[in-house]
């Protein structure tokens, strides 16, 4: 199956009721993200409007996932996007592509900075750290079954307390880079 990967399009994702970041992340963890059709839909319409991407938040999300898998090559960022029918002059083709390329370039630079400073990756690593050793490591390694886990819990008594997911904080962190 090395031959087959997916070409993920933003407007197809949103028509399906998914975010582009979800589609990219899901494809990427399956080693199936091959290329993207970079466009955007009108979220108020149920149509595949294939508009050019201009939203920096979207392009940042895309580039975070793409950089996590070290790029798309041999795939790429293809503008499967069209100028709207009101933008009818040839020169509008340039405005559209320049805007899309700049939006992705900004997304790339923002994502690079986020990754370089490591706040997100450190937080996520820490969030799952109970799987790095002890019983968590045994679960991930497939060394234990239900009976072992029952015995573990019966012996342990009090569980490790949950940690805050810090959703609002982490969204604030992202906005610091935009």
């Amino acid at each position: 199956m090395d031959r087959v990967k997916l070409n993920i399009e933003t407007n197809h994702a949103t028509l399906a009721g998914h975010t582009m970041m979800h589609e990219l992340a899901y494809a990427s963890i399956q080693n199936a993200l091959g290329s993207i059709d970079a466009n955007t839909g009108d979220l108020l319409l149920g149509w595949d409007t294939d508009q050019f991407p201009t939203d920096i938040y979207l392009t940042t999300q895309c580039m975070l996932v793409i950089m996590d898998q070290d790029g798309l090559a041999p795939g790429g960022v293809n503008f499967d996007a069209k100028v709207r029918r009101e933008s009818f002059e040839p020169v509008d083709l340039f405005h559209a592509h320049i805007g899309g390329m700049d939006a992705f370039a900004r997304g790339l630079k923002i994502a690079a900075k986020i990754r370089e400073e490591g706040i997100l990756s450190d937080f996520v690593a820490k969030r799952y750290s109970t799987y790095d050793s002890g019983i968590g490591a045994k679960i991930e390694a497939g060394d234990v079954g239900f009976a072992d886990l029952e015995e573990y819990v019966l012996n342990k008594g009090t569980l490790e307390p949950n940690q805050s997911g810090r959703q609002e904080w982490i969204e604030n962190i992202i906005n610091q880079y935009l």
Binding site: M67, L72, A73, A81, H97
Partner: peptide, 18 residues
């Protein structure tokens, strides 16, 4: 982050819409 922007982004123009 170790690659040129051209290498990261590999921009492509589509023949159909454009």
């Amino acid at each position: 982050a170790g690659k040129t922007m051209k290498e990261w982004l590999r921009f492509s123009v589509c023949y159909w819409h454009t």
